[in-house]
Structures are given as structure tokens and as C-alpha cells.
Design a protein around this nucleic acid. Structure first.
Length: 245
DNA sequence: AAGGCGGGGTC
DNA sequence: GACCCAGCCTT
């Protein structure tokens, strides 16, 4: 007998149903866009258009809760207001400021990236995904997030929140969330709107942090509940449990 | 595909 | 006390 608290059949739906059919995608997009506009979280890095300040935020936010990052980020950009200021700072001082956030390699990578930008791009954060990807410590998520948030480019992102939402709502397997499969990246791009992708991305992150959480998701107050595969599978699971007991 | 990194918040 | 967090890099 399976454990009672696990969801059975989460990726075992009828073969005929297409997970990402157009109507469902449009419904998802409309609902989530509305939710995002009404629940926008106000973080300091969301108030700036400075690509340098946004890049700093991306480094600090890796695998780290946004609320935890906020005060450290304020102190950091206060100390190093410009990219040149950070480039001139002693590595040890930078590391000390970021110590409370863990993942200590980030301080070094961030400083290395800043030096590369100073050397190769005259101190201006590069504007293309390919160029950003070459920076040390910058992967696909950060590259695309900078493109969207700092330069207004239509680049959808896939992070742990987006992956979880897509897997649940559309019933996408995609392997473990950690793997960041190409299937999930394609889904992330597919559901994103054509315009205002930066705000859209932020809405997805906020939704994952507030409603579609990893543990104890708030399905009761979820605007997507009607068409969510996760809810459906949970019901199947509940019935199964009822029958077995 | 899997493991490591990490302090801090949450349940 | 276990789990998770705006990922990335190395085997």
C-alpha cells in the first residue's frame, strides 16, 4: 500500500489529452497575468532599471529566499553603487558582505563577472543571452532574467517556481525539477505572453512563492484550481485512499 | 543524470 | 529536525 500522503498518478493521464493544448494555455496565461498584477511583490531590485543592480540581485537570489536577500542586497548596492565600485572592491570584503547568504562561491563569481564586463564591455552589462552566458556564474536562468528585467526582452525563464507550477498545472513530468528538462523550458516559453515578459516572469515567481508552494500548496485559494491537473490527481488520490481504507 | 554548495526561514 | 529557497558547475 502506498504512503497516504503521496500523490499517485501525477504523471499518468489518458494518452489522448494534450497537456499544452492552446485553449488551456490561454486560460492559464490570462488567469496568471491577472494574479500577478494584483500580487506584485515590492523588492528593491524591482525598483531599479540599472542592469548592474539587477545582475547583482540575480547572483544573490540563487537558491536563496527573496526576503532573506533583500536587506543584504540593500547593504551591498549601498556599498557598491556602480559596477566600477564593485570591481575595485577587495574580494575579501565582498565575500564578507555576502557571508550570511551562504553559497560562498557566488561572491567570487560575481566579482569575476564584473571584471570581465569592465574589461570586455567597457563596464556595460552585455545585452544578449549568449554574451551573458559566457560570464562566470551566469547560467540560462540568470542570462534570460537579465535580458527580460533589465533590457525588456521577451525571454521567459524557468526556475524552481516556474517548473513546479508547469508540472502541476499541465501535468508535465519533465523528470525531477532539478534537471530543468528541455520539455519544461519549451513549456515556459509557450505559456509566456508575447509582451511584457519581464513582469510575467515575476508573476510566475510570486505565484510559486505565495500559492503554488513546494510544501502545502494553497489550492483552496488558487485561481487556477479549476483546470489544474495537480488538483485532479489529488482528488483521484483521495478517492483511492478512501477506497483502500 | 546526479551531487555539491550553505545559511536562514518555515513547518 | 527535515525541507526548501529568483541556480550553477562539475563528474
Amino acid at each position: 500500500m502506498p504512503a497516504l500522503n503521496t500523490v499517485v498518478f501525477s504523471s499518468d493521464f489518458e494518452p489522448g489529452s494534450q497537456p499544452l493544448n492552446a485553449a488551456k494555455v490561454r486560460w492559464f496565461r490570462r488567469r496568471l497575468k491577472t494574479w500577478g498584477q494584483q500580487n506584485f511583490r515590492d523588492f528593491p531590485w524591482r525598483r531599479t532599471c540599472d542592469p548592474y543592480a539587477i545582475l547583482v540581485a540575480e547572483f544573490l537570489l540563487q537558491k536563496t529566499t527573496a526576503a532573506t536577500v533583500a536587506p543584504i542586497y540593500q547593504e551591498f548596492v549601498g556599498r557598491y553603487p556602480t559596477l566600477s565600485d564593485l570591481a575595485a572592491a577587495p574580494a575579501e570584503e565582498v565575500a564578507s558582505l555576502l557571508q550570511p547568504l551562504g553559497l560562498f562561491f557566488r561572491a567570487q563569481k560575481l566579482r569575476e563577472s564584473v571584471l570581465v564586463i569592465l574589461e570586455n564591455y567597457q563596464g556595460n552589462v552585455p545585452r544578449t543571452e549568449a554574451q551573458l552566458l559566457e560570464l562566470p556564474g551566469v547560467g540560462k536562468y540568470i542570462a534570460r532574467s537579465v535580458c527580460a528585467n533589465a533590457f525588456g526582452q521577451p525571454k521567459a525563464v524557468l526556475d524552481t517556481n516556474v517548473a513546479r507550477i508547469l508540472q502541476r498545472f499541465f501535468g508535465i513530468d519533465g523528470g525531477k525539477v532539478k534537471s530543468r528538462s528541455s520539455e519544461l523550458w519549451e513549456a515556459a516559453e509557450r505559456v509566456a505572453p508575447k509582451q511584457q515578459v519581464g513582469p510575467w516572469n515575476l508573476g510566475m515567481l510570486d505565484f510559486g512563492a505565495a500559492v503554488c508552494t513546494a510544501r502545502n500548496p494553497r489550492c483552496g485559494e488558487c485561481p487556477l484550481q479549476q483546470q489544474c491537473e495537480y488538483k485532479i490527481s489529488s482528488e483521484i488520490n483521495s478517492r483511492l485512499i478512501a477506497e483502500l481504507s
